[in-house]
């Protein structure tokens, strides 16, 4: 019946509006959990969510060794040419030539933090850091070399 439908329509609408208002009313009266970060003031205690992506960094252990083999999987995976890997040939203990990373060049200004390079990396050499204060006065400062000077490939990483 039309009238019955109409009335139940109105009642349902009022009920749903009331539920919405109850939610915001609850937030209004329970003013404890604040999601506002008072950022520059709380820089020391700032806790970012685990999944926040700030920039790509390469992990180094205490002996200044990294895990990057220079396979360029990340370079191929990157959708906008952020990563450029310059390789060199090392001579290893047996006198054989071996390909190794010379410079891991990372253009932060091009990066969209899409995480594809990290997923592509077969040796878990790079990861996403949580730093986010990236502003500098010159664009060239955003082009970074991720492997530290004189760093070596970690033993056993192929």
């Amino acid at each position: 019946m039309f009238l019955k439908e109409y009335i139940s329509d109105v009642a349902g609408a009022l009920k749903s509006l009331f539920i919405g208002m109850k939610r915001t009313g609850y937030y209004f009266t329970h003013h404890k959990e604040i999601i506002t970060e008072q950022y520059p003031d709380n820089r020391a205690t700032l806790v970012l969510p685990e999944r926040f992506r700030g920039e790509v960094v390469m992990t180094h252990n205490e002996n200044n060794e990294h895990r990057c083999t220079g396979c360029t999987a990340c370079e191929l995976a990157c959708p906008n040419g952020t990563i450029k890997i310059v390789t060199k040939f090392d001579i290893n203990a047996e006198g054989k030539k071996k390909k190794a990373v010379d410079k891991f060049v990372y253009h932060l200004e091009l990066c969209t933090m899409c995480n594809l390079c990290i997923q592509a990396c077969p040796t878990d050499a790079i990861k996403m850091a949580q730093t986010f204060e990236h502003s500098v006065y010159d664009r060239s400062l955003l082009t970074k070399v991720l492997n530290k000077p004189d760093s070596k490939l970690q033993e056993g990483v192929e």
Binding site: Y27, F28, T36, Q38
Partner: peptide, 13 residues
């Protein structure tokens, strides 16, 4: 202020 309180924010402070 009301909007901030309803959205669990602080508002102008």
């Amino acid at each position: 202020k009301v909007s901030a309180y309803m959205q669990i924010r602080l508002g102008p402070n």
